[in-house]
Amino acid sequence: MRVLGIETSCDETAAAIVLREADGAGHILSNVVLSQLAEHSAYGGVVPEIAARAHVEALDTLIARALAEAGLGFDALDGVAATAGPGLIGGLLVGLMTGKAIALARGLPFVAVNHLEAHALTPRLSDAVTFPYLVLLVTGGHTQLVAVSDVGRCERYGGTVDDAVGEAFDKAAKMLGLGWPGGPAVEKRAARGNAAAIDLPRPMVGRSGADFSFSGLKTALRIEAERRAPLDEATISDLCASFQAAIVDCLVDRTGHGLQRFIEETGERRPILVVAGGVAANSAVRRALEGFAESHDARLVAPPLDLCGDNAAMVAWAGAERLARGLTDSLDAPARARWPIDEIRTA
């Protein structure tokens, strides 16, 4: 089946067509993304009303482009999927209403997709991964460890108790004057710095459970940076390297606790660990997780970079996976700013 996917939950407007074959194999037929970086960078972060205005401006043209790039018309579609949450409500409504309208006009089934589940199901599209697997979901808005045992069956082992990891990168970049978005900026400077130069805490490390915390780390970075102000270029690089190293240590430690529980509960002998979300584009994070997986006899799956950040192929795919199981939504489905991954409807 071919499914149109629409993503407007944050600052990327995206549309894609994905083909899911009867045996479960997935193919991306088109995947177009329009980033709003330029619109938001002057504000040092995503401004919800600016994002919503940009989505409504661009979305219908983007959908037409996704169809054109796939060489398909609406009559070739078997379903329409749109992100319904979690995310910024103004933007979600633009994608949701557009998707519902297309479904109504073409008599197609509609799927209201959970953005987190879309991230979590992506490795089945990119790497044909089979259930069950453990996902480390690291984005600008979320940091979670989720055991995925089927479509609609996600168990959240733990999550951040304060900032998301992408948010921590953004805040660090802001205090060091590196601009927005912060992840790529900090990573670039970290490559030139000494990760052992500044002693920063590793919140939650060693504790039981699989929760994360980054707020204290951010505060410690501020204290260390203020102590060294005014900052020279080398110190900024050292601060970035030390901060990134602390984050990597936290992610690896918490993932270790999650993986242990996953193995106990599933009995998997060679468990699959997936890293998904925009922060998965960070090469230090990837390298560390590769090393971790190798030493724990796990298989690490990291979807390609264009499927790590927000995109619509993952939404189309999640829609196709749900449609294949007969899970559709009615056209009165609401947008949901908050929608935990373990509260997804399964029947």
Binding site: L59, D60, L96, A101
Partner: peptide, 8 residues
Amino acid sequence: SAIRGLAL
């Protein structure tokens, strides 16, 4: 959004 979707 709805009307543009219907028109498209």
